[in-house]
Amino acid sequence: MAKVTFTLNDETVTVDEPLNMRFLDILRKELGLTGSKEGCGEGECGACSVFMDGWLVNSCLLPLASVEGRDIMTIEGYRETKRYKVLENAFVEEGAVQCGICTPGMVMAAENLLNRNPSPSEEEIRIALAGNLCRCTGYEMIFKAVKRASKEGEGLW
């Protein structure tokens, strides 16, 4: 066990857990933040995506040790932002949600893209979402949702 301190959704958090715990487990079990999902446990599916210092990372591959001093945002923090609201609306309007288990991670990946490229092409959207697996939608409506968000959220990103 060791004390690790980091910023989580704009608040300072200290946990006292083994350094080799996966950060995903810290979030879900110790902190009760279950919006980040476990799909594969090996960085393939992206359902566990969070932001670390503003960049998308797979929390299932992060040992707690790597989080020391970092700034973390999960879907629970992100959903309180204006940008999220735009993405949420676009996902609903375009029918981009089916079973929904990949969706929080998918929205985080979309933010990761739009934050750096507010008007992406479809090709750029496809590349940006390639680390997030969805088995329901065939991705088509997710592409449309990201395009819609990019348009409707003009100025936000």
């Binding site: 083994p18 350094l19 080799n20 715990m21 996966r22 995903l24 487990d25 879900r28 079990k29 476990e38 446990g41 090996e42 960085g43 797979n58 299932c60 591959l61 992060l62 040992p63 040790a65 790597s66 020391e68 001093g69």
Partner: peptide
């Protein structure tokens, strides 16, 4: 980064990674 070692030493979810050797975390 851990992207390889965390997979190779993966354990049951919610339990620590099963490393067999002392670990030096240099990511920071």
């Amino acid at each position: 980064g851990g992207t390889d070692l965390m997979v190779k030493n993966r354990s049951w979810s919610e339990t620590p990674a099963r490393f067999k050797q002392d670990i030096l975390y240099i990511h920071n």
